[in-house]
Design a protein around this nucleic acid. Structure first.
Lengths: 212, 212
DNA sequence: CGGAAGCTTGATATAAGTCAAGATCCGTGG
DNA sequence: CCACGGATCTTGACTTATATCAAGCTTCCG
């Protein structure tokens, strides 16, 4: 009896925008690796408030910690249409900690931890402009690292409301900050694409190191 | 040649308040497990801004991810005087993933990840009052879980400035919110001790689920 | 080609920050 | 044991960054 006799073990699935990969509180049964499209995990609060707690870009594992024994799942939703490969928990449990992609899973989990730590600092202490520069700079870097950004431009399929829910601001305020950044000639943003005229300056602002 | 011939392998160390356990950027050489006292990791920004990214209470491992292969270290500082047991990285690397406390280390890391995810949502979308209730409620629960809180009271050795740097507010504003919570009869706070008259109501407010 | 979702902008409101000054607590040296 | 000085806490007056409300515009999907 060999695990791979079961063809559902690694399976490609598609999701439409706004469709849930996982719902809140649900016990997760699989981890998805994104082949195409963006997703996020988020939390809802009273008064219609939503906060996105993590963005997942193409190539990322969504919530890899499920494979390491975490029980509780957050809601994960598609921000674009998505093609993802699912890794059922059962398989990895069977393979144990020596499993083929276990190293990748652990390293993805550690990367999330480090990113979250950064983001706590960003939300706690940076201004609106710094937060948005940090977000766009980070997205650009992540996409460049896996070959999806060239010549200071990359895809940016997020709506301004999505961005607002990442940076903890109002969509209206995000709009005003973007307008200002455009006026300053730092970036342009049209038809779901981001153009950075000066990625270094952007990251500098986003770092929060320049005086308050 | 046996690792345990070296007596420095597990070592008890003491730190005074404001002393660094690890400095920013430094390559960490050991993970500490707190036996007594509180620590935090933090980040600094321009304009004198500081954000605490994680609180470590007695019994916690500080930055356990270092034992899982993470390279980059954040600054970790003592918030009180501290007694800690150090677990050198070398030992665990030798023991491999089957090491005696490897399971505990992994589980501590996953707990951090989950806590950070919560805290991103808190900083992004909750009001000042909700953030402070969330913080105090969480501290109380964590201390209760390892037997350091009884009868609705627990130690709280943080200054208001420390709390401000956790919740991303000004110390002055923290002071006003605490005054208000006292007036409402939800809590009292004196000589480094927290008294909760109604922990359930506090957690309810801190959850952010009650309308905006 | 119609309608909903998303974007933009202005006017106004408010939560939280800043500045300033006292009051209180607490550790340390005499 | 006391006195001093710095850190911490408290409060008031005022400012500011961001939110809210409202309306028109644009884009794009069905």
């Amino acid at each position: 009896m060999h695990m791979y006799e079961n063809e559902t073990i690694v399976e490609v699935r598609h999701f439409r925008r706004h469709q849930h990969l996982t719902r809140d509180g649900q016990t997760p049964s699989a981890v998805y690796r994104l082949e195409e499209g963006w997703t996020c995990s988020y939390q809802l609060f009273g008064g219609g408030r939503r906060q996105i707690t993590m963005l997942f870009l193409p190539g990322d594992y969504c919530e890899p910690q499920w494979l390491l024994g975490e029980r509780r799942a957050h809601a994960v939703i598609a921000l674009t249409s998505v093609r993802a490969r699912s890794l059922p928990l059962a398989e990895c449990a069977a393979n144990g900690s020596q499993g083929s992609n276990m190293r990748a899973i652990l390293s993805a989990t550690l990367a999330m931890l480090s990113r979250q730590s950064e983001w706590i600092a960003t939300l706690g202490r940076k201004t609106a402009t710094e937060r948005i520069c940090a977000l766009l700079g980070d997205i650009f870097e992540r996409l460049r690292a896996n070959g999806r950004a060239f010549n200071n431009t990359c895809p940016l399929p997020l709506t301004q409301t999505d961005m607002a829910d990442v940076v903890g601001l109002t969509p209206i305020h995000v709009n005003r900050v973007l307008k200002d950044l455009r006026k300053r000639g730092l970036l342009d943003l049209q038809s779901r694409r981001l153009y950075l005229s000066d990625p270094v300056a952007l990251r500098e602002i986003g770092s929060g190191y320049a005086h308050a």
